[in-house]
């Protein structure tokens, strides 16, 4: 399947020192086209008050893959991502105008959907790392505590699991009780990822997770994302096309609130079907 030669060595290089399975499970978008994905968006319109932000979005996001949203600023990629756990509900006047977002066979905008229950199953990592002003440990187990886990052993296990999954365990296992703000930026972002996966969600949404990080920290987070897709369905918004190319199995290009093109990453970058996509990827606008 891998055809886009110029990019392959680099990708391979990253993937190589990661878990070997990552290479094997290269995704073929056509294989799932038409089938039900993990997240399916059905002809969705989304409004901020009277202003329409997303038009007729239609997409199937497959399970246990990394899907990237790219596009110029203000194209609606973050808005779309934030629809998946309904965190947009926080904003006054934001609402879905028509269509559905179906996760695990259920339209999450139905009235009988409990947002807290939804958000426990759809985790999110934000653009700017935002640990709580608490200890590292308390940050990681926060999600468990609020869902009522009280047993010390359970919490400790979850903490270790999450920090290991986020490749942070070795760096901070001796300072779990210290304030999270003592960590470096990259570490804080990985802590936020650990915090999100400690509750074992099915889906992990990442809103430009590396935009506030330096290149080395970015690389580490990217490695982490590739590891995470073994367990989670990852959806990532990124401003950086290289990043999408490096981590994503599928890429969606959005422009002015519309989904222009959605295909597997290699197709998008090597053989885009739409003129707009091609222009964007060539860097003719941003």
């Amino acid at each position: 399947m891998v055809t886009a030669a110029p990019y392959e060595p680099k990708k391979k290089q990253i993937v190589d020192h990661l878990a070997p399975t990552a290479v094997d499970k290269t995704f073929n978008s056509k294989a799932t086209a038409g089938e039900e994905g993990m997240i399916s968006v059905r002809d969705m319109d989304f409004n901020y008050g009277a202003k329409r932000a997303l038009h007729h979005i239609q997409m199937e996001i497959p399970s246990k893959q990394v899907t990237a949203f790219i596009g110029p600023s203000g194209c609606g990629k973050s808005t779309l991502l934030r629809c998946f756990n309904r965190i947009n509900d926080r904003i006054q006047g934001a609402h879905i105008a028509s269509g559905q977002v179906i996760i695990k066979g259920k339209n999450i905008y139905d009235k009988d959907v409990d947002t807290t229950s939804l958000r426990r199953q759809v985790g999110m990592v934000f653009q700017k790392y935002n640990p709580f002003p608490k200890s590292i440990y308390e940050n990681v187990v926060y999600g468990l505590r609020i869902s009522g886990v009280k047993k010390k052993a359970d919490l400790n296990d979850a903490c270790e699991y999450a920090l290991k999954s986020a490749a942070l365990w070795d760096e901070c296992k001796d300072r779990l009780k210290q304030n999270a703000f003592g960590l470096s930026g990259g570490q804080m972002q990985r802590l936020c990822i650990a915090r999100a996966i400690a509750v074992k969600p099915d889906i992990l949404l990442m809103d430009e997770p590396c935009s506030a990080l330096d290149p080395i920290a970015t690389l580490k987070v990217e490695e982490l994302i590739l590891q995470l897709k073994e367990q989670f369905t990852v959806v990532i918004v990124t401003h950086n096309m290289q990043q999408a190319r490096r981590v994503a199995d599928l890429t969606a290009f959005m422009y002015l609130g519309e989904l222009i093109e959605f295909a597997d990453t290699l197709t998008i970058f090597s053989n885009p079907q739409q003129l707009k996509t091609e222009e964007y990827i060539r860097g003719q606008f941003s």
Partner: peptide, 17 residues
Amino acid sequence: PRAFSEASEALGATKLQ
């Protein structure tokens, strides 16, 4: 900061929590 409450709610915390 808003980021705190956003992070908490994204983890499935209720308003009160």
